[in-house]
Design a protein around this nucleic acid. Sequence first.
RNA 1: CCGGAUGUGGUGAAAUUGGUAGACACGUCAGACUUAGGAUCUGAUGCCGUAAGGUAUGGGGGUUCGAGUCCCUCCAUCCGGACCA
Length: 1022
Amino acid sequence: MEYSFRDIEKKWQERWKASNAYKVENNCSKPKYYVLDMFPYPSGAGLHVGHPLGYIASDIYSRYKRLKGFNVLHPMGYDAFGLPAEQYAIDHGIHPAVSTATNISNFRSQLDKIGFSYDWDREVNTSKPGYYKWTQWIFLQLFNSFYSRKAGKAERIQVLINAFEKEGNAEYAMPNTQYYIQQFNAKQWKGFDEKRQQDILMQYRLAYCGIGEVNWCEALGTVLANDEVVNGVSERGGYPVVKKKLRQWYLRITEYADRLLEGLERIEFSEAMKEMQTNWIGKSSGAEIDYSIRIGELETTEIRRDIKSDDPSIKIVEVAISETVAENDEPLRVYTTRPDTIFGVDFMVIAPEHELVEEITTEKQKQAVDEYIAYVKSRSERERMAEKKISGVFTGSYALNPFNGKAIPIWISEYVLAGYGTGAIMAVPCGDERDHKFAQHFNIPITNIIGKYYDGNEANPTKDAILENSDFLNGMVMRDAIEVVNKKIEELGIGIRKINYKMRDAAFSRQRYWGEPFPIKWINGIAYPLDESELPLELPEVDSYKPGLEGEGPLANIKTWTSQNLETNTMPGYAGSSWYFLRYMDPHNDKAFCDRKVSDYWGQVDLYIGGTEHAVGHLLYSRMWTKALYDLGYIGHDEPYKKLVNQGMIQGSSRFVYRISFMDFPHLGVMEKVIVNEDAEIFISSGYAEKYLNNELTKQELIDLLNTVSANYFNYSGEIDNLPISLIKLHVDVNIVDGVELNVQEFRKWRNGEYVNAKFILEDGKYICGVEIEKMSKSKFNTVNPDDLVARYGADTFRMYEMFLGPVEMSKPWDTKGIEGVHRFLKKLWRLFYKESGSSQVSPGGGDLEGAVWTEEKATDVELKVLHNTIKKIESDTERFSFNTGVSGFMIAVNELSDLKCHKREILEPLLILLAPYAPHIAEELYAQLRQAPSFGGGLGEASILDATYPTFEAKYVAESSKEYPISINGKLRTTMDISLDAAQPDVEKMVLENDIVKKWLEGKPPKKIIFVKGKMVNVVI
RNA sequence: CCGGAUGUGGUGAAAUUGGUAGACACGUCAGACUUAGGAUCUGAUGCCGUAAGGUAUGGGGGUUCGAGUCCCUCCAUCCGGACCA
């Protein structure tokens, strides 16, 4: 009987479905294990071979854990809201729900062919009202709570209201420091009208509404995401994009910054991933320092001091303030992480948008400042980042160093960002690269406070230097001086310690249709949440998916919607995916997003597999939601994912053909002299193409080659060197290329016969394609569809080959050619059970065992050794997600058992159980045959291999008494010797010195030393 | 610029703790069987060399009896972040 994978896989997929083999119960006495794949967006393009990589890895691990006696939750569903469906709707007028459903059904059928062990009863879809009801519900919880810094967790907004009524907000500092009321007492609070009270509460809510900037594209009439804006214009169409202030919803994730950092220490993410999240959060500690300001012109004198550097550009300026100068009421507040450098401050820089700019600009500098601000406004963010021009202008005013009164000029420059810190910095050129460049550019004298650490040419951001020119800090190490200055500024009341974060609150609204509606009504400018009983607030039908006026979403066009005063924004893509791992646990619950008892049973996701692209988006948001739900008492754990494994990308291996072209632009003038006599395009094989491109093939030789396929293909009357001939490199569909050899028949049919008349210049009778590794994408014709491979080799082969390619975490190129090796392995495995000849019929009952060769004979020591080595290898490889070496472990086992002609059930049955997670169909089929064949002593019952017991490794079967030791001379391997494992050093030395090869190298001299590492090696030093 | 990752045969890769570099495959070559082979099986295969041997894990240096693995330094490729004071 042959290995007939098509019948076997179809049969078992149907049977597993019929028997609910993958159904998972929430009530189970077994220990739980939760394996999760990152939520896919069901795109219209379908799956290519890169997508299922992580799914296969997680499926293997899930099946393995099940065999190990765990109750394994391994669900799948769809993150179904999102822009592509909406864009498709705009372009084709098809409702996103319709196109999404089509995509999902394609996606599902592709997944089904690969034989995953998902419990499809638990499938979720974020765009279904039954799901987004709970997304809206969680949003309401976030809306109705705030982050209590006192308690270090989220609490109900009512707690805050009670406090305000009793004592104002003295105990609860306002998180939004920009709001115009910062402090109030109980009496004031009670005096506020409802609008103002609600405005104030909005400054505290975890989900809140504020004013934010969006990318507004007038021409397209829509708001664009950051990645849809390229170089200041829209990606589609290239229309100008401006920043526009719009009402936006936000999540106050910044309040969780510290806990998000702290949580990283308790979860198993890769160091790289933790690093990325840490950088994104961007915590820095420093101080805010107030400088009083003097507006007006000063008399300055430059004094050379005794500075160690010889560089004349290092100057110390002393500034005398004239009597006529006015003091500004408001001080200049700067944020610095290096208060120790306060005596090295040579100038201040404030952001062009800084509120003090107007007040402190002097008459004399006004024109320059205005011009500069106009210039900055004209530049897009992209321009600012792309061309880093040093630019800035002096305001005319000075800040005074609070310790010694030194006057420091205040500049404005775009290199200081309004949004970070206080939007103002104290510039220390000797210690900061950008400050240094700025000082050099504008010829601002530089004070050296770090002596020899500063060479006059480049800033040195060290913390180890000993301070000089620094008043009371002189002689101190910078690292220690930080604390000294911090203390001092607090004593003097001129500043405070301050912790800053790069992370901003997360924008949580989109001006789009295809997303969750906000359960919010706006009445008289106040946001009122809907009652829970009104959920889900369902998306209305629309006639057009075009946006509303002034950057509002499509919902703004719907009378029935706006007449109810409902919010017209919708939630962003990450809303539904921030909590989906909880819904899988209890997907049909209509009383709660997830029953507390159920979430307590399943707890954290034990293993999460997905790509790095979600490092700072989804992974941070879902961590925050989990923490909020935990704080509010809805779940019992505050980190969603215990362990994260990042899968690498599968790259495409593109193939190219080289077309002869007479369209060489610099030679257009001579084109008339070329007459092409034939309506055919000539393609030349890559070997010749490479040579020609590397100038190893002359034009004449190329022409000779052309003439071999088509005599008088063209006439040319001019100089051969001027012949405008070149090669055009074209992507060709990898599916019509076998390895690197182009299937020329298929090529002629490709693209509706575009190349039907193509002629080829071959090498050894073959057309060889060029190869390049690129991202897998349709436009590069390098995508490979898993369906085709499953049809040709079967799901088991496909699964194992995806794993065999290399480590899951690593990116690697796809090469279809290698799949043969894995397929051969499965066929070889099959031959341990069946002779090739005979019927190829599969009979469901297992009655047809024609050609079966397995026996009930007792296994030999050698066979048991192979088995137990394999058990050990597969178990440990699977545990550490080293699936590629696991597959090779199976190959080694089957190779060895084939060599031993071992057909014994005692060996083969455990082997099948080991294999079942990797290749479930063939394992189940052979297992069923093996156990049910009466004539072979079977009849062991119909139990599925899915719930078999994982074999146990026993060391006694693999014990060795001797080892082939490598014998090195001076560290270089010269020979090997079989030596007993209990041999001691003296015996070994004796044996080794008697060895002929060792003798030869010793040349009669005694060795200096012999190193013997028991069980490892021997090294003779001469 | 900054941060992260990765560099090993013609290709994908292995080497888990510093101890026989290249397991397992693909490809290639030779052979067997066959009407046939894009089936199957056997053997060879890092490079130079007939061989002995030499040489080899991106380059250079170091530690060690011994380095793909540890340290220093430089280079290349890929992926993120972009002026964060």
